[in-house]
Design a binder for these strands. Structure first.
Lengths: 230, 230
DNA sequence: AACCGAGTATGGTCAGACCATACTCCAGGC
DNA sequence: GCCTGGAGTATGGTCTGACCATACTCGGTT
């Protein structure tokens, strides 16, 4: 008989306390958590339980553990949600609990939003430079894998140019989790000319601040990359 | 001097092996992982390391641990990325590494997409029923907390009606992480009449399949909820 | 002042023990 | 034959205590 409230495990209590401490003490990125042994004593649990809690926080990209001694040693608060998101999506795809269709549709939503807002924010010299650099690298790419690496950089740069770090993080995670499928898609296409022309059009629209054209261009781009879904 | 490649920890090796096994053996949701002791022996690591790896997988919503004995005991493969996403966003907000602005903009993007696709998929009886139920519950809500609970149910139902589980999961995570802020926003507003009227318009547009009006209605709704950001 | 070695705090790992839980299975009674 | 209750057992949950590798700190030496 399940009463719905499984007894909370020791490491979950540690998680609650640490999160409470972050909120109450106003801990910021760069601050350190107490050592594992000290935390264990404070919360009256074993070091193993503390370690499991820290492992969870590390998985969520909230802390980073460093061995040794000194100001940078121990569990330091960070904020790198990207890898957590990427792992999450990759594993969900691996378990087939999400269809490629759902992921691509999500990507299309984010690409359109990013392109629109990046164009609206134009002209910004740094993003434009990052985009151009990725395009040149794609021209010189020798393999599908190489091409996809710079393709990811290109699209992530658009998301970053939008100015929204959450959306940029989701884009990074999506592309990271889909890397394998993207390489396969490029291999299937054989020729990347269409994709490269798409990139050029996207670039021009964004740097000239033409939001409508930018949105249309990324939409057409995804249709070219995944013709079977359109 | 950092060589960039920190020696991989034991639990990371376990993670790799488990993920490889999922891919190679074609493990599906519902399948069981070997027991902690057995896995430890197979991979030649201690049980603690196996436990840390399983804790990571549990955090990512990939496995669920059950004590006891029998077919459901042990580490069972699942797929519940929602809580992981929620934790991720909540902690990132707590560390102020994301601004409310970025989160709300992301939400607006998702709400618009969901409303558009939900309206396009109409008429579907089940989603319409879920939406109506949440609206009625909001009418009867006695507190801001109560109102927000059903408000979340309403918006999640829209995302689910869109048919995209990834986007629905992101919506659930976003709203879960923002719960506290939503309650504060409702308290600040004092009166929920405007919000309830918005819901009614959103509902009507979706069930009648009017995509354009649905998108406009959710946009207006968020502007009412967070006037300071528009 | 520059160098070098001992000291030490940190996370990483392991072995082994015990507990609570919840199923499995079988003996016994009806 | 069927049901029931208790023993058995495999599971995760927790704790203890130990040892290691790492990397800083500090003091003494040159």
């Amino acid at each position: 008989m399940a009463d719905g409230t499984r007894r909370t495990r020791a490491f979950e209590e540690v998680l609650l306390q640490v999160e409470r401490r972050i909120a109450d003490d106003g801990l910021k990125v760069g601050d350190r958590l107490p050592g594992e042994r000290q935390l264990a004593e404070q919360l009256q649990v074993s070091r193993s339980s503390v370690r499991e809690a820290i492992r969870v926080l590390e998985t969520l990209g909230v802390v980073s553990s460093q061995v040794g001694r000194g100001p940078d040693a121990g569990a330091v608060l960070t904020s790198r949600p990207d890898s957590a998101l990427t792992d999450l999506l990759r594993l969900s795809l691996g378990l087939s609990s999400l269809s490629l269709r759902e992921v691509i549709d999500t990507r299309l939503m984010i690409e359109r939003w990013s392109a629109e807002h990046a164009a609206r924010a134009a002209p910004l010299p740094e993003p434009a430079e990052a985009l151009m650099e990725a395009m040149l690298a794609m021209e010189a790419a020798a393999s599908a894998e190489d091409f996809v690496r710079h393709d990811i950089a290109f699209h992530v740069a658009i998301a970053e140019a939008s100015g929204n770090r959450l959306i940029a993080a989701v884009m990074r995670a999506l592309r990271g989790a889909m890397r394998k499928y993207a390489i396969e898609a490029v291999d299937r296409l054989g020729d990347t000319r269409v994709l490269r022309e798409d990139h050029r059009r996207i670039y021009d629209a964004i740097v000239s601040g033409d939001t409508a054209t930018a949105v249309d261009a990324v939409t057409a781009h995804l249709a070219h990359a995944y013709p079977e879904l359109f």
